[in-house]
Each structure stands twice: as structure tokens, then as C-alpha cells.
Design a protein around this nucleic acid. Structure first.
Length: 970
RNA sequence: GCGGGGGUGGCCGAGCCAGGUCAAAGGCGGCGGACUUAAGAUCCGCUCCCUAAGGGGUUCGUGGGUUCGAAUCCCACCCCCCGCACCA
């Protein structure tokens, strides 16, 4: 029979793959996962975020989608009409950037994409052809969405593909336009200034992946405080600092003597800054005009006045000053800034060398203004000494010293001078800024920060910070929005619950968020079409789009005719459907059908994804639903899973240890992967992909198939096994069905997979080895077992189901509900009693280190079970000996010492004596004699039932207690 | 720094919310055995320390506390990981 596993490993894998392909085809042909409204059944709308189609997915994605699929499949068994749709995300810059780089001939990228293509297509020619096509972003997206959907099919995901779309489709654009128009009407969208990284050459904003060195140098934006030092006659030397609170300690101002400075006309004033700063000021929306140029050294000796305490200080030369950092002018606080301290000492030591008149610097002394625990008056001096700073050229040592002082003073320092004396540094900093800004004496100056400078874009342009004056924002702090968001969250289930706090905090922390960019793929802002809606902002309520897109397409509605009224009607039920129908050129019935389908499926019952999405996507998902929909359409539940790592290390492109999803069915198999990825870790645990463990799961899977083969090929004898082990296995099956049901309902996927597959497989093995061979019974068990296994290993389950004569697809079979009384706890406990006894025997054997041939097992007499039942019924911990003796007094009278011994045992264990019924224990021991022999290695096992007169040379029998028979080995 | 999550036996990892059945599931690794010409696969046993009969001792980051009883609750401390945005 061809579908059975062959002998070798590869044959088994081949067989698995062949049945997987077979069932995938059958599911597709029978369209069993296409979900349509059915008022007769409860609906369940499950979504997992659509993938971004810039490259192949990996097993981390696979874990998340598999969990979603397991849940969808489980709920179909529970009678739900389950909708699980999928689409593809193409919005934003990455896909466009890929094409741009391939067009530019970027070797690194071409190599990367060739390696991706190799996963899917054969032949260098074909790869070349595709790379050529990838110069068009649409082709990138088309290719990857197509292969990703094949990957999903190959893993057996039960997706309704009719609703598939991409976020670049015209219908989607119309939908997102509606969303933004309505958000704006509600006052949730505002416009304002916003700093961004900006390529001076290309004259456009850049993201991290547009920057050379990309993710390694971590480019960012930092806020300096520009401080205007009055040079008289309307001229100001504009210094910039990260520590405005140190202004009271200023002793001088530094300029780089060799750098070029410019004098700018700004708001009726003259500002002096470095030449490099000029363009930055302009980009940051300061209208400036160059009116003069000068060398840094020309400024030396100039006296300027600080705007806070009004001290007159000289301008001095500092070679450490970088003209390309902020304004290229810094003020000096030698008491608290190591650079300033070192530079000041340099100048004072040898003024001539710096071309400074001695009298200009002679009197300059550090001015302490911050008290710092653990330091003296001059923390900067101490830090310089500790780090071995010899001059202002010791960059490395100075950086270290600066970092030390900056951090310490920021968090621990207290001002001792100036208008904010007595305040903490953090507070003084804010107050100083307010003071300066309020009086026009300072402003925020944005600068690029990075681990390595200079920061240059991939196209070679210098990257600076620009302020966009007309950036569009989602204003999460708009009146009422957050309240609704909090309410929505409150009503929602979060699984695992421990992540709820993070959602709550994220909602609080949300402020204005830029929601559009000038580049990339996506939907244009309807009210300002030069902007393209940013990719997280256009993916917040798209689950609603799934409910109708397939119908819109089937009806052939022209996207350009839809307009806001169309979506108002579909989602809000607003407007006159007859009139609208005419406008979009469909029948009123068809239009109403759209509305009805939306109403049927909404709200989203369940969204599953990875925890990384909490602080962005998922919170927006909640917020936008809160903004645009009625309470009854707010999402009901979010479940989350941690990521996947491999052999203890993170997967990353650079390490080359990423396992692409497409390889899974080739190297392993769909069911194998599914079973492993669900059983190897809880939702809240990082899944460590270990090949050793994966192999173990494969081995178990194979064992399952072998047993199934035996069962399926067997001729049912017609004779029913009524032995205790058969009854035990039936009970185990019933309890498995109950437990797995409950576990899956509560998203305990790992526990469910272990119980349904591994534990139950072991039970079946035990039955086959030590019990009977009632194949009729086993067939029955396999049939309900197949349903419980179907969410995890759907292909194998279908095979089992079909082979055993199940009707239709097991994927659609109802969950088997065990009859009342099908679970027999006393049998299951009796089995455990036997297992524990085996452990005891082995412990004895190990301790005595002697070969023993024969094992006597003496079971306790009925009256001992009666004592225990009585005590259990009447006493709860803490249990005193006195109470126990009182409760069991009649037994004490009847059985004396032996009863006393038992009661003491009970008190000692505080009632925790695990046992079954006398009948079950006796039957089970008798039935499992062979298992006891196998596992202990003794040749003969004698089960001594009470009163049977079995020899008891050591008088052990009286020590027997319920759940723990007495033992004698000889 | 702020916010969040954690620290369990050689390793990974359950248990902790609802304290007792916890020397602590399961897997991996290791050791021994069965099977086999052999290897692999599979199966069985063992795998903190002591122990010549199922016993005892010491363990769940560290130190205290609550309790008849703590891996589980409380306090303090130490250490690790993640997020801090306009980016998918």
C-alpha cells in the first residue's frame, strides 16, 4: 500500500510530503476553507497580520501563522464558521528601495536577492531574468506574494484565499482614503513641524535603510539647545549645547580657530555659526541669509554675554570643536564638562601657542554649579584625571569621561548656582530651556547622531536634520480618542495576559505620530496628495476590508466610483443604498449584500501575531477601531507569541542562520514543522529551534504512522477487549479529548499538542505492548484521535480519517464529545500507581545492588482504603494526629497497630496519599505484570492480593497502603 | 533613565497567578542495558549528594520575612533580556 511509510527515513519523509500535497489539493478543490456568512452557525473571524512582501518569510513567521491556523482548525471542529483570510502588505519604502538599488546596480543587494530567488527558482538564466524584472517594485511584490502564498499552502494553512489583496490595489486605496478622510473629520489628524533625517543632495527625507552603513551606525536625531551669546550691536554668537542647565557655569565660548564661520541675518539679528550650520538652520525652518564670512580665529578674544546670568566671557580657540556638530560654537563649563576642562587647561598652560593673550585666560577658573554625590567641586577635573586625559586631543579618554559625568550629573546632580539653584539637573534643564525659548534667547537645534560619523546616504548625500513644516500627524491625544482606546482595550482579551500592561502603557505614551511620507508605495493622502500614507497607518482596520473585497471584485465595482459614501454605507450603514447602488453601478441587493457580509463577520474575534507588534501595529489596530467603529465592532481578542531563535542564537541575515519557510516542506514536512513549532514552546516563550529536537519529533511522528499502519491494515477480530488496559485507554482517550479541547480553547497550544500527540501516542503504545490487540477499539480511538490531532497535523489526520472510513474531511468533523462517565479517574490513577511502584522497585534494586529474581507486590486490604477515604472526607490540612485518630477511631479498635501506622502515614503526608480504588489497583497490577518485568528486569512478578495467602517471608504485606503496595524482592 | 519581562537541576524548559500530591513534567545531552554481524533507528532503566529495601540530606539568582508548610506569597538586593516611535 503506497501511502504507508517505507523503511527508510527518506521514504517516510517522501510519503509524508506526498500525502500533504494530496490533501492540500483536495482541500483546494473542495474549497472547504472558503467561508461565507451562515446565520445558522456562530462565526469566528480570525486574522494574523499580512506579511510584508519584500523577501522570503522564515520559520519565525511560520510559527505565528501556524498558531493561527491551529486555532482556526480547532474552532471548525467546535462548530464555528471560521474566516481566516490573508493578504499582502506592500506599502512603504522597502520594496521601492529594493528596486531602486537593483536599478543602481548595488552589488550587495543584487547578491542578496539572487540568494532569495535561488530558494524558489532553478537556473541562473531565470534568476537573471527575475532580477531584471525586480527593477520594477511591482514585480518584487508580485513575485514574493506569489511564493509566500505557495509557502502558506504548502504548510497546510486553512486560508480563504478569495479575499486576497495587496495594499497597493485601487480598492484598497479607496478604502484607506475613506479612513483618513473620516479620521480627519473627527479631528484626529493634524499638521505641524517635524524633524526628520534628510539627504541634502537628494533633497528628501531618508530612513535608516537609505543610509550608508544602515543598521550598524544607528542614525538618529538629537535635540541641542542653541543659546545666543550677545556680542553687542545685534550680533549673537550662537552656541549649542546638550546641557543648557550648565549655563551658570560658563567661563568662555569655544570656536574652532581653523574652521569657517558665517554671519547670518536672522529675524533682524545677526547670528554667527559655523559654515556647516547654515544649511542646517535653513532646513530647520530658520530663515537665514548669509551676510559675512570669517575664520574661527578672527572671533578669538571677542567678549560675549550669556543670556541667563549675564556674565561677560571671552571667545577662545578650541581645536576639539567640530564645526559640523550643531552650530560649531560651544560654550565652556570646565567644572562639569571634561572637554572644556581639558581645553581650558591647554590654553592656560600655553596661551601663546593658541595665539591668545595671556591676560585673557589668566583669570579663568572653573565655576562649580552642580553638586554631585561622590565627587568634589570639579567633577570634570576628577573625570579627566581618572581617564588619563592629557589634552583636548585625547578624544577617546574625553568621550569616556564625558559620558561618565553627563550621565551621573543628569540623574544625580543638584544645581548649586544660578536661577535654578536647588533644583535637580533634570528639572533645571527643562526650566532653562523654557526660560531661553520664552524670551527668544535660544531655540532647539536638531543634529544627527550616530555611532559613526559622518552620516551619508546611499546615494552619497550628506545627511542632516531637516524640519518638515507641514508634516501630517495622527494626533492620539486628540480629545476623546485615548478614552475610547482604553475602553476598547479593557473589553478585549489579551493572551498571555501579562502583555496587557504593555498595551496600556503604549496607549498612554502615544502622542502625535507622523502618518504620511513623501516617498514610497501606498495610498495618497486624499486631502494633500503630495503625501503618501505611511505603512503602519494604512494597516489598522484592514480586517474590515477582508469582509467585502471578494464581493467587490466579483461585482466588478469600479474603484474610482466608490468614494467615501460607499464605505460609509458598507461599514457604517449610512446613506441611501438605492441611490448609492446606482452611482457605483451595482444592484441595490448586491450593495446590501456587502453591508450584510461586513455585519456578519465583524468584529474581529481574534488577532494573533508576534509580541513585537504590541507597541505599534496592535495598538494602532485598537486605536483606529476605537476611532472609527461602534463599540460592537471593536476587536475581541489578541493573542501573541514570542519569536523563534535557532540553536540558542538569534536568526539574522548577517549570521546566515535564517531558515526560510520555503525550505520547511522540502527539508522536513508541513505536519512535522507544525507539530514541532507548536509543541516546542508556549506562546510566551521564545522558541529555540534545535535540530536535535526537531528530529525527535520526526521520530515520534514516524512511530505514529507505523502504529496507524498496523491498525489500518489489521482485520478487526470482532472480539471486544474488556480488559482493564482497554478500559484505561478508552478513559485516556476521553480525558485527552476533554483536556485538549480545554487547552486549545485557552490558547495553551503547547500543552494541547503534547497531550494530544506525544502523551496519547505513549498511551497507545502501552496498550499495544501490554494490553490487547483490539483493533476495533483502536480504530475507534484513532478516529476521534484524528480530530484532536487535526489542528496540529491536518494532513496526517486526514489520511487517518479517510483510511478508517471517516466521512468527508476530518478538517470539518465535529469535535468528539466523550460521553458522561467516559473518563475513569480511578483507572488513570491506578496506572500511575503501577508506574510509581516500578520506580520504587528500581530504587530498591539500585540501593541493594544485588540481583533479584522475584518481586512480590502486596496490595492493601479494603479496610485501608476505607480509612483513607474517611480521613480524606473529614480532614483538611493542617491535620493533627489527634484529629486523625479521632476520625478513624473505629478502625483503630479493629486493626490496632496496622491502622495506626497508616494513620501516621496519612498525617505525615498531610493527606497527600495518592491512590485509586482497591479494585482498580488490583486489576491494573495484575494486567501490567509484563510491564513491571520489562521495566525492573526481575524475572517473576507475583501480585499478592490481600487474603490470598501468598508467601510473605519478611512480613511486608502489612506495610501496604492504598496507592503504595508493599514490596518484597528475593 | 523610563517602561515591560525574566533568573529553576549539565543544557533547553514546565511549574509560580489560585502555597502542600515538587528532588521538581517533558525534551536534549550523558551513562548502562535490550535488539542487531555492526552502526543507526527503536525500546527499557539511570542521570543533585549519601544510603546493603522504597530512607535521609541539600536544592529552584542572593539575603530576609509570612506560614504548620514556599520554587510558588511579601520585602530588599544582584544579574539578564526587550521596547523607547514615525520604521516594516
Amino acid at each position: 500500500m503506497i501511502y504507508f511509510a517505507g523503511e527508510g527515513r527518506d521514504e517516510f519523509k517522501d510519503w509524508l510530503r506526498s500525502i500533504e500535497a494530496k490533501w492540500q489539493k483536495r482541500w483546494r478543490e473542495a474549497r472547504i476553507f472558503e467561508a461565507d456568512p451562515d446565520p445558522s452557525r456562530p462565526k469566528y473571524f480570525l486574522t494574523v497580520p499580512y506579511p510584508y512582501t519584500s523577501g522570503p518569510l522564515h520559520i519565525g513567521h511560520g510559527r505565528t501563522y501556524t498558531i493561527g491556523d491551529v486555532h482556526a482548525r480547532y474552532l471548525r471542529h467546535k462548530g464555528y464558521n471560521v474566516l481566516w483570510p490573508m493578504a499582502f502588505h506592500i506599502t512603504g519604502t522597502p520594496i521601492e528601495a529594493i528596486s531602486a538599488r537593483i536599478r543602481m546596480g548595488d552589488e550587495e543587494y543584487i547578491r542578496l536577492y539572487r540568494s532569495y530567488l535561488k530558494l524558489y527558482v532553478k537556473g541562473e538564466d531565470e534568476i537573471d531574468r527575475l532580477i531584471e524584472r525586480f527593477k520594477d517594485p511591482w514585480e518584487v511584490m508580485k513575485f514574493f506574494s506569489s511564493v509566500i502564498s505557495s509557502d502558506f499552502d504548502a504548510l497546510g494553512y486553512s486560508i480563504d484565499w478569495r479575499r486576497r489583496f495587496t495594499t497597493g490595489d485601487p480598492e484598497y486605496n479607496s478604502f484607506v482614503s475613506w479612513q483618513f478622510i473620516r479620521l480627519r473629520e473627527k479631528g484626529y489628524i493634524v499638521q505641524g513641524g517635524h524633524p526628520v533625517l534628510y539627504d541634502v543632495m537628494e533633497e528628501q527625507a531618508v530612513g535608516e535603510d537609505d543610509i550608508l552603513g544602515g543598521d550598524e551606525i544607528k542614525p538618529g536625531i538629537v535635540e541641542f539647545t542653541a543659546v545666543k551669546f550677545d556680542a553687542g550691536e545685534g550680533r549673537y554668537l550662537v552656541a549649542a549645547t546638550l546641557r543648557p542647565e550648565t549655563l551658570p557655569g560658563v567661563t568662555n565660548v569655544w570656536v574652532n580657530p581653523d574652521a569657517r564661520y558665517v554671519e547670518l541675518e536672522a529675524k533682524g539679528e545677526r547670528w554667527i555659526v559655523s559654515e556647516e550650520a547654515e544649511v542646517k538652520l535653513r532646513l530647520q525652518q530658520h530663515p537665514v541669509k548669509r551676510v559675512g564670512e570669517l575664520r574661527g580665529r578672527e572671533l578669538v578674544g571677542l567678549r560675549v554675554r550669556d543670556p541667563l546670568v549675564g556674565r561677560s566671557v571671552p571667545v577662545l580657540p578650541g581645536t576639539f570643536v567640530d564645526p559640523d556638530e550643531a552650530t560649531g560654537v560651544v560654550y565652556s563649563v570646565p567644572a562639569h564638562a571634561p572637554y572644556d576642562y581639558a581645553a581650558l587647561m591647554d590654553v592656560k598652560a600655553d596661551p601663546e601657542r593658541f595665539g591668545v593673550p595671556r591676560e585673557l585666560v589668566e583669570g579663568l577658573q572653573p565655576i562649580p554649579i552642580i553638586r554631585l554625590p561622590g565627587y568634589g567641586e570639579l567633577p570634570a577635573k576628577e573625570a579627566c584625571e581618572r581617564h588619563g586625559v592629557r589634552s583636548q586631543e585625547d578624544r577617546e579618554a574625553l568621550e569616556a569621561a564625558t559620558e561618565e559625568i553627563y550621565k551621573k550629573e543628569f540623574y544625580e546632580g543638584v544645581m548649586t548656582a544660578g536661577p535654578f539653584a536647588g533644583l535637580k539637573v533634570t528639572e533645571a534643564k527643562e526650566r532653562t530651556r523654557e526660560f531661553l525659548f520664552g524670551r527668544g534667547l535660544g531655540f532647539t537645534f536638531y543634529e544627527v547622531t550616530a555611532l559613526k560619523k559622518p552620516v551619508v546616504s546611499r546615494s552619497g548625500g550628506k545627511v542632516v536634520v531637516a524640519v518638515l513644516p507641514d508634516q501630517w500627524f495622527l494626533d492620539f491625544n486628540a480629545p476623546g480618542w485615548k478614552e475610547r482606546g482604553r475602553e476598547a482595550l479593557k473589553a478585549m482579551a489579551i493572551v498571555p495576559e501579562k502583555y496587557r500592561k504593555l498595551f496600556e502603557d503604549t496607549i498612554e505614551w502615544l502622542d502625535k505620530r507622523p502618518c504620511a511620507r513623501k516617498r514610497g508605495i501606498g495610498t495618497r493622502l486624499p486631502f494633500d496628495p503630495q503625501w503618501i500614507i505611511e505603512s503602519l497607518s494604512d494597516s489598522t482596520i484592514y480586517m474590515a476590508f477582508y469582509t467585502v473585497i471578494h464581493r467587490i471584485r466579483a461585482l466588478g465595482i469600479d474603484p474610482s466610483k466608490m468614494g467615501v459614501e460607499f464605505w460609509d454605507y458598507v461599514f457604517w450603514g449610512k446613506g441611501d443604498p438605492d441611490e448609492l447602488a446606482q452611482r457605483v453601478e451595482v444592484s441595490p441587493e448586491d450593495l446590501k449584500g456587502l453591508r450584510e457580509e461586513f455585519e456578519y463577520w465583524y468584529p474581529v474575534d481574534h488577532r494573533h501575531t508576534m509580541i513585537a507588534h504590541i507597541t505599534n501595529h496592535l495598538t494602532f489596530f485598537i486605536m483606529h477601531h476605537a476611532a472609527l467603529f461602534d463599540e460592537r465592532y471593536w476587536p475581541k481578542k489578541i493573542t501573541l507569541n514570542e519569536p523563534v531563535i535557532r540553536e540558542g542564537t538569534k536568526m539574522s541575515k548577517s549570521k546566515g542562520n535564517v531558515i526560510p519557510l520555503v525550505e520547511i516542506p522540502k527539508v522536513y514536512s508541513a505536519d512535522w514543522f507544525r507539530l514541532y513549532s507548536v509543541s516546542a514552546a508556549d506562546l510566551a516563550t521564545v522558541l529555540d529551534w534545535r535540530d536535535r529536537d526537531v528530529q525527535t519529533v520526526g521520530g515520534r511522528l514516524r512511530r505514529f504512522v507505523e502504529i496507524f499502519r498496523m491498525v489500518a491494515e489489521s482485520e478487526p477480530s470482532g472480539e471486544r477487549d474488556v480488559g482493564v488496559l482497554a478500559r484505561w485507554l478508552e478513559s485516556r482517550t476521553a480525558s485527552m479529548l476533554r483536556q485538549v479541547d480545554e487547552m486549545l480553547a485557552n490558547h495553551r497550544y503547547r500543552d494541547a499538542a503534547i497531550r494530544a500527540f506525544f502523551d496519547h501516542l505513549r498511551d497507545v503504545e502501552i496498550y499495544l505492548r501490554y494490553g490487547g490487540r483490539d483493533f476495533g477499539l483502536l480504530r475507534k480511538i484513532f478516529r476521534s484521535w484524528a480530530v484532536a490531532l487535526e489542528p496540529f497535523i491536518p494532513h496526517l489526520a486526514e489520511e487517518v480519517w479517510e483510511r478508517l472510513g471517516g466521512e468527508g474531511f476530518v478538517s470539518l468533523a465535529p469535535w468528539p464529545e466523550p460521553e458522561e462517565g467516559a473518563v475513569r479517574p480511578e483507572l488513570e490513577e491506578a496506572f500511575r500507581v503501577v508506574e510509581r511502584t516500578i520506580e520504587d522497585v528500581n530504587k530498591i534494586l539500585r540501593t541493594v545492588r544485588e540481583r533479584k529474581e522475584r518481586l512480590f507486590i502486596y496490595l492493601a486490604p479494603d479496610w485501608k482504603y476505607e480509612i483513607i477515604s474517611r480521613l480524606e472526607a473529614e480532614l483538611k490540612p493542617p491535620i493533627s494526629q489527634k484529629d486523625a485518630f479521632r476520625v478513624a477511631s473505629e478502625f483503630l479498635r479493629a486493626h490496632g497497630k496496622e491502622a495506626q501506622h497508616l494513620i501516621r502515614e496519612f498525617v505525615g503526608e498531610q493527606g497527600a496519599i495518592r491512590h485509586s480504588t482497591p479494585e482498580a489497583e488490583r486489576e491494573m497490577f495484575s494486567a501490567l505484570v509484563d510491564m513491571i518485568k520489562d521495566r525492573t528486569g526481575v524475572r517473576e512478578v507475583v501480585i499478592a492480593l490481600p487474603g490470598e495467602g501468598v508467601p510473605d517471608p519478611m512480613g511486608k504485606a502489612k506495610l501496604a497502603i492504598p496507592g503504595r503496595p508493599a514490596l518484597y524482592l528475593e
